[in-house]
Amino acid sequence: MKLNVPTLAQLSAEGKKASVVFWVGCAGSFDDRAKKITKAFVKILNQTNTSYAVLGIEETCTGDPAKRAGNEFLFQMQAMQNISTLDKYEVTKIVTTCPHCFNTLKNEYPELGGNYQVIHHTQFLKKLIKEGALSIEGGVYKGKRITYHDPCYLGRANKIYEAPRDLIKKLDAELVEMKSCKSKGLCCGAGGAQMFKDAESGNKEINIERTEQALETQPDIIAAACPFCNTMMTDGVKNKDQEGKTEVMDIAELIANANDL
């Protein structure tokens, strides 16, 4: 089924505007697992008749991995390019499913001249519910044990701990916390450009350590709110041979599934 996804270019050709731009991010655009998250979120946007658009082929990497890999030049080049695209369409509000894009757009673009209201999709979904545009009945997740992994760039970096948790509670699920959570949450191992390289030698992979913490809570589902965390935790669960028992899901997917989207 082809999804109906408006782009800013289309809208502006029709003389229309979108009230929010959905920043899909590189993982959300190209990574097979992350694309599912993107689609789930788009389905919710469509169902709630949200006025939104994506940049499509006009979007490019925010520069986050380059910056964290020490290439400030490349980061700023990417940022300048994106800012000029966003400003061309007079964008004021951005929602994104990736905490890395979220953090960079929100915190690191202003100094380079890009000023937007940037929202993470968990905050956005919470707002949709509050405004009555979206409602969730627990549905398939009623009573399920769900543990939530805090992405570093959403949690510690931006102090967003509650929005994702509130959404999980809305599913009538049982939210169980890992031994290190919220401001003490352990990284999945992907940040700081680690996603794109092998780890230095040590005695364990970081994602295995984190997955073990998650599995200790005996969850039916490990909820994540970041495409990179999702990949790391999914690999961890596979490594522990727990795929049959525990699923790694983005919060957007949980909500889309609960609403049979």
């Binding site: 655009s29 190209f30 993107t38 689609k39 082929i57 979007e59």
Partner: peptide, 16 residues
């Protein structure tokens, strides 16, 4: 424009 070797022209491929 992406950390992986994909063509930027395919950025919206997921919608299809």
């Amino acid at each position: 424009g992406a950390p992986w070797p994909f063509s930027n022209q395919d950025r919206l491929q997921w919608a299809n």
